[in-house]
Design a protein around this nucleic acid. Structure first.
Lengths: 348, 348
DNA sequence: CTCGAAAACTGGAACGTTCCAAAACGAGAT
DNA sequence: ATCTCGTTTTGGAACGTTCCAGTTTTCGAG
């Protein structure tokens, strides 16, 4: 069972071995490893040479046990297969790596039970901080457990009702509002909203922005046009099929995110329809693939990588003792491509 | 500096505290935690109750230190922003989670130096196993260091010259060959190959399959038509621009992967050309987005998630003592969509 | 009852570090 | 030489577990 031995059967080499080999005490070796200025250059060199010679590898588990500090952080993502979250993870990992931290990763696939398991596992490993995109159905108490343990927590992409946690989110409300206004300006009057669930704050914000734009334009919100569902391709495909079968179908839709919009694209295609020509479609997130779809997707651009970096910086700040929570909301832009029909000059 | 204290300032609760509270010895608590059958049901209940009451959280670092076994594994990916590798990571994480292991993640962005850093960091944490998609320029010795330490290693997607390691790869050669044969059957005679570097084994295999098909059809391989570059969008965009400026441009191309093909799509579009109509394009990997591009991408389907799962199972097997390396090659299929022109009935 | 074996429990050493208090060293000052 | 004081170095206790070698308890058989 993975008894830490080299194939040669030699036991792990420890600081004690280094000390012996260099003719100093283990304390001195420790000092050298920590880059302490208390040790004489000459001694340091001897130690470094011994480390080199014996192929020593530092045991952070032991150090952490005694020193009560860890360089492990947790990264809990609700859907890593969604390119949006992958980009987020990349941003997070980038700054953690630069700061000397190493992240655990867990993909909860929107499953609170699974999320609970990984959170427990991570706390057993004494993580120094945590970035989490909470799965749908996460209760604040699930997160609170972590905070109680003294682990700095930053929520990414999804805030949570209840206690004030640090968070990092795009400006969902404004983005959705702008996108909807764009469709309105294009002459659409029956506009649908696809994807997400009303118990997710992000969906609330995006759907709220959509509704606000409608109301501001004097258009009543039609609940029949708000189709909830998981934020994935399938949902988009089902939703478009559903609304097109209505007596008075919508002529446009804003999607909860790009992935849902990709599903809509497929659904339209199946019916021989094309976005931009027969139906105006707008996504949200602007993942890298959005510009390559057929037709290219009009969507709300989110600077995902930067958002991830921001989240990591926030955790780092909290690890270094600054406990103040910070709710960061990043600005967003509508990027107009062909799927909304604007590029083709279509007006109604 | 992250002194593990709750906001209330209470120190961490340990097995000793549980023991005291339950009126047993710490050894008994340990036994309970390990689910040992040696402890009486009644005692077990008392201990469990104490754990519940005091909010104890197990310290795996300490357990690992003494027990010489860890449930941490490493996952080193060369480009997590590529949906293909994200899907791979998802598959890996899925089986590790199910097996009770928790993965570190690192994104090396094809940088061997960075890769070296994360490998060191992971070994300092005493990982039980490692799955790595080696960055370009990885020397076998970089990996060998891990193996020397007794860490089971599985290479994913990219094999390595030298010692026999376990690996998991799609059948690159056959996939590329089939894709090329398809283009040949469509009447193309000047077919380019875009992306990847000849010092990457995966590129060798894919490009090799492409060349084999050409040769079998009695067509000489034109080195001018093999454009190397990083496996990203930019490379595809540059490559297509480059070949279209040739005196006798190719009429088709096989790309090292889908992401390169996405770049080609953009490049064609910029010139007012369309894949499938003006140029036949085939990708490799069949990432989820391939079916939504404009036009949908003909590509070689790889069962990425399953490949990731396989890799994880292999590490698990090795962790459990079976040291035999296994080189797994998964079968692939060409999936014909519109970008190769086959759907439009085009013949030359 | 007593005995012996099986079942249930336990104390202490060990894992590889860090950290503290204190020891050793060295160089000026007396 | 001796004393001081700053610089280096050091031994040993801790960190929270596991595991071993016992020890105590339980219980059925004699």
């Amino acid at each position: 069972m993975n008894t830490r031995e080299t194939p040669q059967g030699a036991a792990r080499v420890t600081m004690i071995d280094i000390a012996r080999h260099a003719g100093v005490s283990k304390s001195t070796v420790s000092l050298v490893l920590q880059g302490s200025p208390l040790v004489k250059a000459e001694t340091r060199e001897k130690v470094v040479a011994a480390i080199e010679a014996l192929g020593y590898v530092y045991n952070r588990g032991a150090a952490n046990l005694r020193g009560q500090r860890s360089n492990i952080v947790g990264m809990v993502i609700n859907d890593l297969a969604n390119p949006f979250f992958a980009e987020l993870a990349v941003g997070i990992e980038r700054v953690f790596h630069a700061a000397g931290y190493i992240p655990f990763i867990a993909n909860t696939i929107e499953n609170p039970k699974r999320q609970g398991e990984v959170l427990r596992s991570m706390s057993e490993h004494d993580i120094a901080g945590l970035i989490i995109c909470p799965a749908r159905g996460t209760r604040p108490s699930d997160i609170e457990t972590m905070a109680q343990l003294g682990v700095p927590v930053v929520l990414a992409m999804r805030r949570l009702a209840g206690p004030r946690y640090s968070s990092v989110t795009p400006d969902n409300l404004r983005g959705a509002r702008r996108a909807t206004e764009h469709l309105l300006a294009l002459g659409h009057r029956r506009i649908a909203f696809f994807g997400g669930y009303s118990d997710m704050i992000a969906q609330n914000d995006r759907c709220g922005g959509y509704q606000a734009a409608l109301v501001a334009a004097g258009i009543a919100v039609d609940p029949m046009l708000i189709i909830e569902g998981p934020p994935n391709r399938e949902c988009g495909q089902n939703a478009i099929g559903h609304v097109l079968d209505m007596a008075v179908p919508p002529t446009a839709a804003l999607c909860f995110n790009d992935v849902v919009a990709f599903g809509v694209l497929t659904g339209l295609e199946r019916r021989g329809l094309a976005a931009g020509r027969d139906f105006a479609l707008v996504g949200f997130d602007d993942v890298a693939e959005a510009r390559h779809t057929n037709p290219p997707l009009t969507t709300v651009h989110v600077d995902t990588g930067a958002l991830g970096e921001r989240a990591a910086h926030q955790v780092l700040r909290m690890i270094h003792g600054d406990a103040r929570p910070e709710e960061f909301v990043s600005d967003v832009d509508l990027v107009v491509r062909a799927s909304c029909g604007a590029a083709t000059g279509r007006e109604a």
